[in-house]
Computed example of a mutant assay.
Amino acid sequence: MPAQKETDATEEPTRRDYMRYGGTIVGGGLLAGCLGDGDTSPDTNTAEGYTATIAPVGEVTFDAPPKSIFTRLTHLAGMAFALGRGNDVNAMHAPDYYDALWNQFTPHLEGVSLDWTGLYSSWEPDKEQLYELNSDVHLADPASMFALGSWDMDDIEEIATNIGPWFGNTFSDRNEAPPDEWADQYQYYTLWEQFERVAQVFRAEERYQALSEIHTDLLETIESGLPPAADRPTAVLVGMSDIESIYAYTLNTPGFLTAHLRPLEPVGAFGDEVSSGDTVDMEAMLEADPDVIFSMGGMHPETDMVAIRENLTDHSVAREISAVENDRVYAQGARYQGPILNLFQLEMTAKQLYPDQFGTWPTYETGPYPEIPVDERLFDRGRVADIVNGNFER
């Protein structure tokens, strides 16, 4: 491990200057960024001393847009991707898995490429490896790092001091309580509120604004087309790698994990006895009897949706569920979605729930996100691609 840098009062602050995390450890600003030229796109001009703020980190000061980007969870890697920085990510949880999943969507974005294969897998990162990566910014929530149990406050502060700042928020996924040590400074954000703050880190506010306008227009399209409440189906969001032990996620739980579902206002089929993240058996699924089953990760190349549907049809209990009887078992993408996947998943889910209002969703078995006729698309792929590539005008 490199020795900690020593400075005295006469030295200039380095780009990895000191940071204290408010309360006992969080708050304050860290002079950070990268050496050399920044991104040359029009919305990332370098500037001295610009800041970005996110809970639980607090305000962070950068001297230039970071070049090398550490991430843990894919909602933050997806934000870097949306800002044209996806290939600057050097670590993430299950990189090969999520590379394959994200690349089910990128073929619809002309000129946009993404390669996360072979990156460091950072679910529970090793501190020595973070020194090796030497990232300009760590797009990760220090409170979630602390919650791992293998990292303490000194470790978190050491990385921020010697390498680069933390900047991220994880417990907004389901608005969960953070560790007690971080509770006083914690705040919950929607996916797009967090994206706005990450855009400030990279001086990419114009890209955020342009994508946010597309998101807002999409939400308005959805809202204007929603059928009356009495005509909306009941639904469940589940992970079905093992249909005898199913992970269930409730649709009305706040947080960005369901950012593609709540705007569509389906009726959650599970009652109060099921909490988001619980495991349920097929008897509980039949008791809920959803009209629609959403299968998380169903669009991943290694997931066999045909087999999932067949297994449900062949199961003595599952075959009686309304969604199974009526062929309404649908593939979904990622829970920890970034902004671009959120656009696709909003469109996808709208069609899955309300084909009469938003157009038919093709029966998905394998391969990339299906081709949708131009006049049935709910957002402009070309505009999104131009924004990600930095070739756009406001």
Results as ranks from 00 to 15, higher is better:
W102R: 11
D43M: 06
V60I: 15
Y247Q: 12
M296W: 13
E6N: 12
D281G: 15
L343H: 06
T216N: 11
G297R: 10
E48V: 00
G225L: 09
N162K: 11
M240N: 07
D375A: 13
F379N: 07
W102C: 11
W102N: 13
A229N: 12
D136E: 12
A32C: 09
L148S: 15
A183C: 00
P227V: 06
L133S: 03
G22W: 03
P42L: 09
T71S: 13
E325P: 05
A77G: 15
F344T: 06
L218H: 06
L378F: 01
L346H: 00
N252I: 00
A229S: 14
G36N: 05
M285W: 01
F105Y: 15
D327M: 05
I308C: 08
R232S: 09
P107N: 08
L31E: 13
R328C: 04
T14W: 10
L30Y: 09
P263V: 06
D126V: 11
I54C: 01
F392P: 04
N311K: 12
F202G: 02
G164I: 01
D184S: 14
S275M: 09
R309H: 10
H75G: 06
D8V: 05
G27C: 01
P233A: 07
D136W: 05
F195E: 03
V329E: 09
S121G: 15
W116K: 04
T221W: 00
P362W: 11
T258W: 03
R383D: 02
Y330V: 03
H315L: 05
E287W: 03
F256E: 01
I222Y: 07
H93F: 13
N134M: 02
A235C: 10
I159P: 00
G86F: 03
E213G: 10
G164P: 02
H300Q: 13
K351C: 04
W166P: 02
T250K: 13
L130M: 15
Q187M: 10
R232F: 12
Y188P: 10
N252C: 00
V280G: 07
D217K: 08
P373G: 05
A210G: 09
R203S: 02
D242A: 09
E223N: 14
L76D: 13
R319Y: 01
A82C: 03
G49T: 08
Y18D: 13
F70R: 08
V236K: 03
L218C: 09
A147W: 10
Y189W: 06
G84L: 04
E132L: 12
V238E: 07
A210P: 05
A288V: 05
R383G: 02
A331I: 00
N90L: 12
E371I: 12
P179D: 07
M240K: 07
I340D: 01
L343Y: 09
P179W: 13
L312H: 10
V60M: 08
D8N: 15
A288F: 04
M19R: 14
N326I: 00
W116R: 07
G390W: 09
M285Q: 02
I308W: 10
R377P: 11
R72I: 14
V201K: 04
